[in-house]
Every structure is written in structure tokens, then in C-alpha cells.
């Protein structure tokens, strides 16, 4: 047993060292492409950290969103950046060299001071603190689900999640407001991507459904399921998925707002019946949460894929 503890301790130290050096390299490497690749690696290692911290729900979300989708977004942005302005990289690195010593050293000193100050603050926290664990445990039976994280997300602090769906929608509205129209790209000529897509997309959809269903009792839930669905959407977009224009107007918008819409309507209905915002009747809580999560999964998936596209989608066949 002690040997295992020792090995785990060693693993912790190695992981901490790796994560920290990757973060530093992301910030310091000259090449942006390299920085993004390192950032994706950083995200994957973070997923491992979450597992070590017994946070499998976050590990799933981090692997799908933190490493996967954020990385894909960055790569796509870098790709478009180089097509917009190829000389930019030279200009930026040339400017970098002009940075005087003091403008680099002073922030570095500040960095060390902040780490020391915050580190001291952390170390003076009490050794043992239960946080809200006892409160969650006590009320789990009334929550309608068995996974404590899902209970917090959809029930105890469901109102945060409602607002968070609005944040996601707002990001998309702002992107659309900026981005103009973006035509769905022509069918990819890459046969490997095409066949990969045919295999992967159904699998991803299945995984998404599984994560959604299992989220009530085990790690998983709307956000993880939604991000897997989003990944499937990104794959489809990359392989040149064709959607007719008529589906890109009303039906797409409907799916995008479904999550926040169902949440708001549910909140209003419960206010009328139960007299409280998002106060579920205990017996019905289970299926109500599943309904909310299903709607949220669809919206999250569609929103993430749309964010990847980066503009109002338009069928490539002009009507």
C-alpha cells in the first residue's frame, strides 16, 4: 500500500512538472502552430490531472472541450489567419525582439510575487474543509439523480446552468453578428476523412447519447454529451457535409435556442405550479432533468459546431 502511495506521489510530481512546462512552452514558443499543438497536449494532460483529482466529469468535459474543441477552434483560426495575412507572423516576431529587457523582467518578477503571495494564501487555508459535501449528500435523495455533479448542475445550482446556456448562445450571436456568412465548404476530396467520418460520426452520436443517459447516475451529462455531439458536427463540417439552405434558417435557429428555451419555459412553468424558480417536484425531478439535459445537449452540440464554422452558415448551392 505504501509503495502504491509512493508511486502515485511520484506520478503527481511528474504530472505537475509536465503540465507546468507545457504551459510555459505554450507561452514562450515562437511558432504559433507549435504553441497550439502544445496547448492541446496541455489539455490532454489536464484531463489526466482531473482523473487524479477524482473529477471524472471534468476530465470528460476537458478532454472533449478543453483539448478537443478549443484546439480545433484555434487551429481553424490559425489557418484562416495565414490565409488572410501571411506576413503577419514575421511582423509580430520582429516586434517581439524589440521588447526591452525591463518589459520582460518586470512582469517576470510580478509573476513570482503573485505565485508566492497566492501560494502563501493557499497554504494558510485549513487542512480539512468539507465545503458543501454534507449538504449535497443530505439532499441527494430529493434531487432526482444519483450523480452528485449532475445534481448540482441541473438541480441545486440549475439556475447557473440556465444562465450558462445563455452565455453559450450569446457567444454564437456575437460571432454571427461579426462574421457575415460562411458557405459550407465543398465536399472534401480526402477519401480517408470521408470514410473516417462515416464510421466516427455514428459512433460519436452513440457516445453522446450514452453520456447523456448515464449522466444521471455516473460521470457524464449534458455538457459532455453536447461537446461530443459538437465534435461530430465539426467532423461533418470538415468533410464537406451538405445541408440544404432551408434547414439552415428556422430549424437550425430552433435547435440553437432549444436548450435555453426549454430551460426558461421549464423555469416559468415550475414558478407557476410550484411557486419557485426551477423548483422540481421531487417525484418528477428525474425526467424533468433528463428533458432539460436532452434539449441542452442538442443546443450545445449545434452551438459548438456553429462556433467552429465561425459565421452564419449558408448552403454552398446558391438558391
Amino acid at each position: 500500500m505504501e509503495a502504491l502511495d509512493f508511486a502515485l506521489g511520484l506520478f503527481d510530481i511528474l504530472l505537475v512538472f509536465l503540465v507546468l512546462s507545457l504551459a510555459w512552452l505554450v507561452m514562450s514558443s515562437e511558432d504559433l502552430f507549435r504553441a497550439i499543438v502544445l496547448f492541446v497536449a496541455f489539455g490532454l494532460l489536464m484531463a489526466l490531472v482531473w482523473v487524479r483529482l477524482e473529477a471524472p466529469d471534468i476530465a470528460l468535459a476537458e478532454a472533449a472541450i478543453g483539448a478537443g474543441l478549443t484546439g480545433a477552434l484555434m487551429m481553424a483560426a490559425l489557418d484562416r489567419l495565414s490565409s488572410v495575412k501571411p506576413i503577419q507572423k514575421v511582423a509580430a516576431s520582429a516586434q517581439r525582439k524589440q521588447l526591452s529587457l525591463s518589459s520582460k523582467v518586470l512582469p517576470l518578477i510580478a509573476l513570482v510575487l503573485i505565485v508566492l503571495g497566492l501560494g502563501y494564501a493557499l497554504l494558510s487555508l485549513p487542512e480539512i474543509a468539507d465545503g458543501l459535501t454534507p449538504n449535497v449528500k443530505e439532499n441527494m435523495a430529493q434531487s432526482g439523480v444519483k450523480n452528485p455533479v449532475t445534481a448540482v448542475l441541473l438541480n441545486f445550482r440549475g439556475y447557473d446552468t440556465l444562465l450558462e446556456m445563455v452565455v453559450l448562445l450569446l457567444a454564437l450571436l456575437s460571432v454571427w453578428s461579426l462574421g457575415g456568412e460562411r458557405k459550407l465548404s465543398p465536399r472534401s476530396t480526402n477519401p480517408i476523412l470521408g470514410s473516417l467520418c462515416r464510421v466516427l460520426v455514428p459512433v460519436l452520436i452513440l457516445v453522446s447519447c450514452y453520456l447523456l443517459w448515464v449522466g444521471a447516475d455516473a460521470p457524464g451529462g449534458a455538457f459532455q454529451a453536447g461537446s461530443v455531439l459538437g465534435a461530430a458536427g465539426v467532423l461533418l463540417l470538415l468533410s464537406g457535409w451538405h445541408v440544404e439552405q432551408k434547414y439552415l434558417l428556422w430549424p437550425l435557429r430552433f435547435i440553437l435556442i432549444l436548450g435555453s428555451g426549454v430551460f426558461i419555459i421549464m423555469a416559468a412553468v415550475l414558478l407557476l405550479i410550484q411557486g419557485g424558480l426551477l423548483t422540481y417536484p421531487v417525484a418528477q425531478a428525474g425526467w424533468m432533468i433528463l428533458l432539460l439535459e436532452s434539449a441542452a445537449t442538442l443546443s450545445i452540440g449545434a452551438t459548438l459546431a456553429a462556433l467552429f464554422l465561425g459565421g452564419v452558415p449558408k448552403s454552398r448551392v446558391d438558391q
Partner: peptide
């Protein structure tokens, strides 16, 4: 008290 829980568990 949102959700009928009340602080500190709820919002």
C-alpha cells in the same frame, strides 16, 4: 430561494 434549496446549497 431558487429551486427551493436555499443557501448555501442553492442560489
Amino acid at each position: 430561494a431558487v429551486g427551493g434549496w436555499g443557501a448555501p446549497l442553492g442560489i
